[in-house]
Simulated scan of single mutants.
Amino acid sequence: MQESQIVALIEPILSAHGLELDRLDVTPIGKRSVLRVTVDGDGPDGHGPLLDDIAEASSAISAALDASPAVGSAPYTLEVSTRGVSKPLTEAKHFRRNAGRLAKVWVGEEQSIGRIVGVDGETLTLDVDGEQRELALPTIDKAVVQVEMNRAAAEDEEN
Results as ranks from 00 to 15, higher is better:
S15A: 14
S15L: 13
A16Y: 01
A16M: 01
H17T: 00
H17K: 07
L19P: 05
L19K: 08
L19S: 09
E20P: 04
E20N: 06
E20T: 11
L21G: 03
D22A: 14
D22T: 10
R23G: 03
R23L: 13
R23W: 02
R23E: 14
R23I: 08
L24V: 06
D25A: 15
D25Q: 15
T27G: 07
T27D: 03
P28D: 02
P28N: 04
I29V: 15
I29E: 11
G30H: 06
R32Y: 03
R32E: 00
S33H: 14
S33E: 10
S33G: 10
V34G: 05
V34W: 01
V34H: 03
V34E: 03
R36C: 02
V37A: 06
V39D: 00
V39N: 02
V39S: 01
D40L: 08
G41T: 04
G41N: 01
D42H: 06
P44V: 12
P44C: 06
G46F: 00
G46C: 01
H47G: 12
H47A: 13
H47R: 15
G48R: 08
G48Q: 03
G48L: 01
P49V: 09
P49S: 07
P49R: 10
D52C: 06
D52K: 02
D52V: 05
D53F: 08
D53C: 00
D53H: 11
A55Q: 12
E56A: 14
A57W: 04
A57G: 01
A57E: 01
S58L: 09
S58C: 10
S58E: 09
S58D: 04
S59Y: 14
S59M: 11
S59L: 12
S59P: 00
S59I: 04
A60H: 08
A60M: 08
I61G: 05
S62Y: 13
S62H: 15
S62L: 14
S62M: 13
S62C: 09
A63T: 13
A63C: 05
A63K: 14
A64C: 07
A64K: 09
A64H: 05
L65S: 11
L65V: 04
L65A: 10
L65T: 04
A67I: 07
A67D: 14
S68A: 11
S68P: 04
